[in-house]
Computed example of a mutant assay.
Amino acid sequence: MDLALLRTFLTVYRAGSFTRAAPLLGLSQPAITGQIRSLERQLGRPLFIRGARGVTPTTVAEELAHKAAPHLDALLAITEADLDATSPTRTLHLTGPPEFTGLRAMPALAPLAAQGVALRASFGSAEECLTGLAAGHHDLAITTARPRGEELAATPLCDEEHVLVTAPRWAARLGGPAVVHAKGAPALDGVPVIGVHETLPLLTHYWNTVFDSAPDRSGAIVVPDLRAVLECVTTGAGLAVLPRYLCRAALDSGEVVALLDPPVPPLRTYFLAIRAGTLALPHIARAHEWLLRAAVHW
């Protein structure tokens, strides 16, 4: 049984009203109604009788509250204790795409380790990250998809610029950026494509935005890590679309070359997502603030 549903149930039970429970949980009243209904479906019994002035618990609710409250209160006391000299180390669970999380988010949060916050990172797709966040497996999620619904909230974190890059020898063979600019996508025919997924999401977005067309090609090399894609590009294996932050050093050193400099470069927005109400926990609020502050310079 989902602990989040039990916490919502216990808060409503104690508040005596969905309306009064809403600000305590940081949820809307419809979201609370949905959670209680979900719990009732799992139990197969009604938990509350709705009235004009609130709700009255059923005998099933009375029994559930009596059994669950001591254990849930103990868990909440552990997870919501303030950081101080006598409290145990708090653990922050962050999830997001591997490259962005590893190269940007975790270094930004690293100083928190000296303040009593243990950091744990996991990687996944946007859907996996948001699903895990909603289930309580993570405290914060960095994702390229804005979550929907009442249970998750998201703040835009930063925009990521995408660059079409290849090795210098390929750029010379193509005639350089001027030729690519003049001929468009057809100038790139015959150059192998390197991507992170069979669907070539970054390349497809770039083609749609810059060339106003869909790429008619498949990946010659597919490896699920943008850092590995960059390494393949630098060896002369072909072309790729990469975030500028990831390939900036390679561009500056001349290991790779940008094939175009469009006036409006393709962008991808990252969002910082949380479960509603969890910013009341000091270690999550602190990490959330640090990431937003660091993202100003990204």
Results as ranks from 00 to 15, higher is better:
Ala4Ser: 12
Tyr13Ser: 03
Ala21Tyr: 03
Ala22Thr: 15
Gln29Ala: 14
Gln35Asn: 12
Leu39Ile: 10
Glu40Val: 11
Glu40Gly: 14
Gly44Asp: 04
Gly51Phe: 09
Ala61Tyr: 04
His66Pro: 02
Ala68His: 02
Leu72Ile: 15
Leu75Ala: 03
Leu75Tyr: 08
Ser87Ala: 15
Arg90Ser: 14
Arg90Trp: 10
Thr91Gly: 00
Leu92Lys: 08
Leu94Ser: 00
Gly96Ser: 11
Thr101Met: 12
Leu103Pro: 06
Ala121Met: 13
Leu130Ser: 03
Leu130Arg: 03
Leu133Pro: 01
Ala134Asn: 14
Ala134Phe: 07
Ala135Gly: 01
Gly136Cys: 01
Leu140Ala: 03
Thr143Ala: 05
Thr144Pro: 02
Gly149Ala: 07
Glu150Asp: 15
Ala154Ser: 09
Thr155Leu: 05
Pro156Lys: 13
Pro156Gln: 10
Cys158Ser: 00
Asp159Ile: 05
Glu160Ser: 07
Val163Phe: 09
Val165Met: 06
Pro168Glu: 07
Lys183Ile: 14
Ala187Phe: 10
Gly190Asn: 03
Gly190Thr: 09
Val191Leu: 07
Pro192Gly: 12
Val193Asn: 03
Val193Met: 01
Gly195Val: 01
Leu200Lys: 02
Leu203Ala: 01
Thr204Tyr: 05
Tyr206Arg: 05
Asn208Leu: 15
Val210Thr: 05
Ala214Glu: 13
Ser218Ala: 10
Ser218Tyr: 09
Val222Asp: 01
Asp225Lys: 02
Cys232Thr: 08
Val233Trp: 03
Thr235Val: 01
Gly236Ala: 13
Ala237Thr: 07
Gly238Thr: 00
Gly238Cys: 04
Leu239Phe: 04
Ala240Leu: 00
Pro243Lys: 00
Tyr245Ala: 14
Tyr245Phe: 14
Tyr245Cys: 12
Cys247Asp: 06
Arg248Tyr: 06
Asp252Pro: 09
Ser253Thr: 15
Val256His: 09
Val256Gln: 04
Ala258Cys: 11
Pro266Lys: 12
Thr269Pro: 06
Tyr270Val: 09
Phe271Gln: 01
Ala273Tyr: 03
Ile274Asp: 12
Ala280Cys: 09
Leu281Val: 14
Ala285Cys: 07
Ala285Phe: 06
Ala287Cys: 11
His288Thr: 12
His288Asp: 05
Trp290Asp: 10
